[in-house]
Computed example of a mutant assay.
Amino acid sequence: MANTLTDQLHSFIEYLQIEKQYSTYTFEQYRHDIEDFYVFMKEQGLRSLEEVEYFDARLYLTGLHEKQLMRASISKKISSLRSFYRFLNREEQLDTNPFSFVNLPKKEQRLPKFFYEEEIQVLLEACNGDSLLDIRNKAIFELLYGTGIRVSECANLQLKDVDMALSTILVKGKGNKERYVPFGSFAQDALTAYINQSRPSLIKEQSHSAVFVNHRGGALTPRGIRLILNKIVEKASLTAKISPHMLRHTFATHLLNNGADMRTVQELLGHSDLSATQVYTHVTKDQLRKTYLAHHPRA
């Protein structure tokens, strides 16, 4: 029994690594979820995945609720097991998937937080300065807001990925998927100033091709970028907390509010599923008011 379960899990993890190209963190989460279920199977006297029935899947779900896990955690565990069984079905190792009809707990619908255009302007003004780090920080902010890339994608950006002539960057996203993202004139000016004036002095004697570097000359990490953004907020004296993902939300929201179609925004964000982009279809109260005043005959 143990060998079969171990072999099946090993095959699935290989599939996630090689075919799906998931990150180490992601496939280790899958491994953890499945190993938790193996513990449940042992407690229930189930010797193989083939013995697991819909009733057992429901019983496992009930146990997760009794442990008072968050809905998102429960959904992730059930989704992991559903994917695991689906893989084994595809490989013709199993004929059934007892988790196919298990209802996942509904997620809380939270609108993503974003900045209004006036707030972005205040933050941009806080980026102004003549020091090497000021020039770098403005380039980071302009690029994050101007492209909507993830903080990890920003940290991993290499000099060869930046095409100033075409005003595009080559971004390596989740699952090593690549996409080209355009950037505007403001981001281009900020990047040009940073790469020509600031980066050569910051990098010192080190030799690497990371676009953004820290004050010691090493490649800037995602954590380092978060700290920079927090300092910009402090300098701007805004009460709102900032995160790189909040700038991503703002990028998408401002595009949609100004008439961009959802498919284009999906492509720019690197979302594989349109449903991940649909969360940004909310509009601000200001935008609703402007639309109403502009188009309603009795406004």
Rank of each mutant, 00 (worst) to 15 (best):
Y60D: 00
I232F: 06
Y180D: 03
Q188W: 08
I225W: 01
L159W: 09
V52T: 00
Y145Q: 06
S207M: 09
K67L: 15
H245W: 03
Y30N: 05
G218Q: 13
K204E: 15
F101C: 02
T96W: 02
E19M: 10
N137Q: 05
N156A: 15
D36L: 14
L123A: 03
I135M: 03
S73C: 10
I225S: 01
H296D: 13
G173H: 08
L5V: 05
H295M: 06
K107E: 15
L157V: 10
K177N: 11
L227P: 02
V52Y: 00
L143N: 06
N128T: 09
M41Q: 09
L132D: 10
N258R: 10
L227K: 09
P98K: 00
T221S: 15
H282Y: 13
S100T: 10
Q21G: 07
S80A: 15
H65V: 15
A193F: 11
L159D: 09
E153R: 01
G224C: 10
S243E: 00
H215S: 12
N258L: 07
S23G: 08
A294Q: 15
S79Q: 08
K204T: 12
T147G: 00
I225A: 01
R58I: 05
E28G: 03
V151A: 02
K177F: 05
P200C: 12
E51T: 07
I203K: 07
S48D: 15
R82F: 00
Q68G: 09
I34T: 11
I228A: 05
V213D: 04
K177Q: 12
L46Q: 02
L274W: 09
L64E: 02
D36E: 14
D273V: 06
E118H: 13
L49D: 02
L5W: 04
A126Q: 04
L81M: 14
R216P: 02
H10E: 15
L61G: 01
L247F: 08
I74P: 06
V52G: 01
L111G: 10
V102I: 15
N137M: 07
Q197P: 06
L132R: 05
E117M: 10
T147V: 09
R110A: 11
T4F: 10
R263Y: 13
V233Y: 05
V52N: 00
Q206H: 14
R82S: 12
K107I: 00
L61A: 07
L64S: 06
L255D: 07
K20L: 11
A187S: 15
F101P: 05
I13C: 06
D134G: 03
